[in-house]
Computed example of a mutant assay.
Amino acid sequence: MEVRQAGHSSVPHLTDLRVLAWAPTREECLAQAVQAMTEAIADPASAGPGAATRELDTVIPALRDEDLLLGLAEEFLHWLDAGGEVPVRAEVAAVPGGVRARVRLVRLRTLRTTGPAPVAVTDRGLSIGPAPDGWHCAVTLAV
C-alpha cells in the first residue's frame, strides 16, 4: 500500500481542540502534530521574514509512543504558557529512550491568531501508531 504524504489537521470543539497528524514515520507524525497545534491557534506564515525566533532542542524521554505524543503536547503548552511562544517549525528525531524535538519558536503575539490557545492536554482519545498507509496520531487539548 502507498504511504500518503505527511500532513495534519485540527478540529475545534466547544471546549476542546482535536489535533490529527499522519506521516510515513513516527517521528514525522509527531512533528506534524506539533505543527497542527500551532496552526490551530496561529498562522505561522504571518511571522514575516524579520520575526524574532529562537531555536530550541528538547528531549522527551518515554518508552511508549503515547507518552512521546503526550510529552510533546505538554512541551507545546509549556512553551506557550512560560514564554508566550509557539513553534513555527518542528523536527523530531529518535534518540535512545525517547525523541529529540528541534523547534523554532516565535512569540505568539507576533502572529495572526486563528483560534483560542489551549490550556491543558487531555488523555481522551490520545493515540499514535502505525497504519497501512504510514503513522497516525491524535491528541485532544482543552481550550
Rank of each mutant, 00 (worst) to 15 (best):
V99P: 00
R26A: 11
T113W: 04
I128G: 02
D123N: 06
A131I: 04
L70N: 07
A45Q: 05
A23P: 02
M37Q: 06
A82N: 12
A42Y: 00
G83C: 10
A94T: 14
I41A: 00
L30H: 05
L14T: 14
R64W: 08
D43F: 09
I41T: 09
A21F: 01
L72W: 02
L126D: 12
A45C: 02
R89S: 15
E39C: 11
P61E: 14
G98R: 04
D123H: 13
D65K: 02
L126C: 05
S46I: 00
P130E: 15
E28V: 03
G83T: 12
G83N: 12
R124Y: 11
G97E: 08
V119M: 06
P49A: 13
L72P: 00
A93W: 04
G134C: 07
R54K: 07
A73T: 05
L56Y: 05
T15I: 09
A120C: 10
D133F: 06
P24Y: 08
P87R: 10
E28F: 04
L80W: 02
D133T: 10
P130N: 10
R124H: 14
R100S: 03
L17H: 00
T114I: 03
A73G: 11
T114L: 13
L30S: 06
A82W: 11
P116E: 14
L126G: 07
R124I: 05
G50I: 02
V119R: 13
A120R: 14
I41P: 00
R64D: 15
G48W: 13
H78W: 12
G71I: 02
V103T: 07
G129C: 06
T53K: 01
P44W: 03
P12W: 03
G115A: 09
V103P: 03
P96A: 13
V19W: 03
A45R: 12
R109A: 14
P130F: 13
V86K: 00
G129H: 10
G71Q: 04
P24W: 01
L30I: 12
H13L: 14
A47V: 04
E28R: 13
F76A: 08
I41H: 00
E28H: 12
R109Y: 02
V59L: 11
G48H: 06
P116G: 09
G48E: 05
V106H: 00
R64C: 07
R54E: 10
T58K: 11
R124F: 10
A33C: 15
G83L: 10
G98H: 07
W22Y: 13
V121M: 04
A36I: 04
R54M: 12
R107F: 03
R18E: 14
R18Y: 08
R112M: 12
V88H: 01
V121A: 13
L77I: 06
V34E: 05
R124G: 06
H13Q: 15
E66C: 08
E66K: 15
P96D: 15
G125H: 01
G97R: 11
L17I: 06
V106R: 01
T38M: 02
L70F: 14
W79D: 15
G50K: 15
D81F: 02
G71H: 07
L30G: 11
P132E: 10
T38F: 01
R18G: 10
E91L: 14
A101I: 06
